[in-house]
Design a protein around this nucleic acid. Structure first.
Length: 628
RNA sequence: GGGCCUAUGGCGCAGCAUGGAUAGCGUGUUGGACUUCUAAUCCAAAAGUCAAGGGAUCGAAGCCCUUUGGGCCCA
């Protein structure tokens, strides 16, 4: 058990006291205390003030008095603070032993929220016509981090990447290839996804402004894409898969992996739409509009003052929400699975098998990538559409909150960075746009970071060989990128600045990784293996206890992060843990003390810190090197 | 016209879900600490009417209402 043990003990005792006083049970808080107010505090006195007609201070004194008579194993004493809070002081010798022993177990930090049930996390889902930019990376890292956290919270997670291979954006590059003669092979070894995005896509769409006839050409291509057997569709399939391969390479490099790729073109051809459309009609969730501006259309009624949403136009074509509805229902396992599955042609890192949907009958492998619940990571510009889908799915599936839209604000470019890309924004931040070529690619940010970090590492360790420097620079760059994408709240806009985001000091991943290197170094230099069989009473300095306390909070943080789908909780936790360690590192020496007992106790603590930091960083997809 | 998000030291953020103690952190500024397990570190100082106004409450950065600035979506 962990820090939660002492919280539970206090909660139980307080409830006992309440029932002894024949006070009906109330919802009071028992939380880790703020610094300077003991170890655990409760607001219970405030909540009883009215009922008992006494001041919180008096109540706290009464409760504290009663508490001293309770059976305690982890609490040393309670104290009534003049403010009215009831504060508790831990028996650290026992609590340290509990927390540090727990940290040595494989199950450390595990919590059970999912109860082993399946959950789908869909993220990435970028049109396969361009390279990933820094805005996409926010989506990908949020999705990947959330799936790691959910797994830790005992969900069986299926990670999906939806490949929109039949939309307008794909049509645009096909126009480029077929009508402007762009070569199929990129010049001078450029990565294919970059080539399609930077050259074919941007330069083709530029021409729409001057040549209106292109619209017609694109329309025809779009139509041909729907028929899987057409030459255009086959060509598009070849191109988009090459782009996808490039995108996946970027993701894998950042430590992001998937379970299955779902192709939109196959969803369209699978007939899922007509199945769900019949169901919608049956359940009267869509209605045919006879008159008005939506006359001849099938619509979903808007709630309250909201507009009706057209899903089938009067000419019979489905709007793009019509692709999302069957897919959402499929993810929840509400439809019979029309797909077969085959392994993706390239092997994914970390030996996680990557599958992809196929309509080919020859591969009769059936798999199940659906979930009891679904989390769809899409930026909050799509909130309206996602709200409709959430509400529809609520009517299809009895499990409450089965479909979840995890929204987040977008990444914009700072005016300085926009300027370097040739756009003067008059001091304002700029929205990224793949179409206008206004973006910073993920690969380029990674490369710049890597260059800077290897430079830094080389300066620090002239003795290191190139491959070691390369490894460290890679881990630090990935960590930096991932941490920057996750550390703030989902509904805050990230203004990306090419220069400022390269900071490696303060509240950053390198700071956290550096503390790991410090801990590793101590363990490496010690001639003993750390064990849990030590004298815990020797760990009594404030910085030691604070570090132990932080270690003990791990599973509480995982619970918080998982139940709120809030990855930043873990980012903050890693940072707090690192701060606590650095403070310990400054104040308490471990090696060469001449006191074997004390040294053993501190070694145990350092090792415990290292284990828990690694586990919590792992939830962020960040690995920490042993030296840096 | 309708809807969503946001506002906290110069700058970037945490805290808000579940109201309660002294509003935390990074960065920047000023000063200090490497003969001592790695200074990508640590310590200290200055810097805040928590956008504005009102309301309910014994008590509000947090809850309710109104207004304003910024961003986005739909029409």
């Amino acid at each position: 058990m962990t820090f939660k043990s002492i919280i539970d003990e206090i909660e139980n005792n307080l409830n006992k006291i309440l029932s002894d006083l024949s006070i009906s049970s109330i919802e009071f808080s028992v939380e880790p205390a703020k610094p300077g107010f003991g170890d655990v505090s409760s607001n219970i006195s405030y909540l009883l003030a009215k009922q008992l007609q006494k001041s919180p201070k008096e109540i706290a004194e009464i409760l504290s008095e009663k508490y001293s008579k309770c059976t305690n194993t982890l609490v040393l004493k309670s104290e009534a603070h003049p403010s009215g809070y009831l504060n508790f002081f831990a028996n650290w010798e026992k609590l340290s032993q509990l927390i540090l022993s727990e940290s040595y177990l494989d199950t450390c930090g595990d919590v059970d929220i999912g109860n082993g049930s399946t959950i789908v996390v869909e993220h990435t889902s970028v049109n396969p016509n361009k390279a990933l930019h820094i805005g996409h990376i926010r989506n990908i890292i949020i999705g990947d981090t959330v799936s790691r956290i959910l797994e830790k919270a005992n969900y069986t997670v299926n990670v999906l990447n939806y490949i929109d291979d039949s939309g307008l954006q794909v049509a645009d590059i096909i126009v480029g290839f077929k009508h402007f003669g762009y070569a199929e092979e990129p010049p001078n070894g450029k990565k294919f996804d970059h080539y399609c995005g930077d050259d074919v896509y941007v330069k083709t769409t530029e021409k729409y402004d001057t040549d209106p006839s292109l619209e017609e050409i694109r329309k025809n291509i779009l139509k041909e894409l729907e028929d899987g057997d057409s030459e255009i569709a086959k060509f598009a399939d070849k191109i988009t898969r090459k782009v996808l391969a490039g995108q996946l390479e970027t993701c894998w490099n950042l430590g992001v992996t998937y379970d299955c790729l779902n192709f939109e073109s196959q969803i369209i051809r699978s007939g899922l739409w007509s199945e769900i459309f019949e169901k919608l009609k049956e359940m009267k969730l869509v209605e045919f509009e006879n008159e008005g501006k939506n006359g001849g259309c099938w619509v979903i009624r808007g709630e309250g003052k909201e507009e009706d949403k057209v899903i089938v136009r009067s000419n019979g074509t489905a709007t793009y929400i019509a692709k999302d509805i069957p897919y959402a229902a499929w993810k929840l396992g509400l439809l019979e699975d029309p797909f077969n599955y085959e392994k993706y042609e390239k092997e994914q890192p970390h030996s996680r098998v990557l599958w992809q949907t196929t309509l080919k009958e020859s591969d009769k492998i059936s798999k199940n990538f659906t979930g009891e619940k679904v989390v769809t990571v899409i930026d909050s510009r799509q909130a309206r559409l996602q709200k409709i889908i959430t509400s529809l799915m609520g009517k299809f599936k009895s499990v409450p909150n089965a479909y979840n839209h995890l929204g987040y604000e977008s990444v914009t470019l700072s005016s300085e960075t926009a300027k370097t890309l040739g756009l003067d924004t008059d001091g304002k931040q700029a929205q990224m746009s793949g179409r206008k070529g206004l973006y910073v690619s993920a690969d380029s940010v990674y490369e710049i970071l890597k260059e800077k970090t290897s430079e830094e590492t080389k300066n620090r360790h002239p003795e290191m060989d190139d491959s070691e420097i390369e490894t460290i620079a890679h881990l630090v760059s990935v960590g930096t990128l991932r941490y920057e994408m996750i550390k703030q709240d989902l509904d805050k806009i990230i203004t990306f600045d090419l220069t400022k985001s390269l900071s490696l000091e303060g509240d950053t991943s390198p700071y956290i990784q550096y503390t790991h290197a410090r801990a590793s170094r101590i363990l490496e230099k010690s001639d003993r293996t750390p064990t849990i069989d030590v004298d815990f009473s020797l760990l009594k300095d404030k910085s030691e206890l604070d570090l132990i306390r932080n270690i003990g909070l791990f599973n509480l943080q995982v619970r918080d992060a998982a139940s709120n789908l809030s990855p930043k909780v873990i980012a903050r936790y890693c940072y707090d843990l690192a701060v606590a360690f650095n403070s310990f590192y400054e104040k308490s020496k471990v090696l060469g003390l001449g006191d074997v007992e004390l040294e053993n106790s501190r070694l145990c603590l350092v090792n415990s810190f290292k284990i828990v930091l690694e586990k919590s960083l792992d939830l962020l997809g960040i690995k920490a090197p042993d030296r840096m």
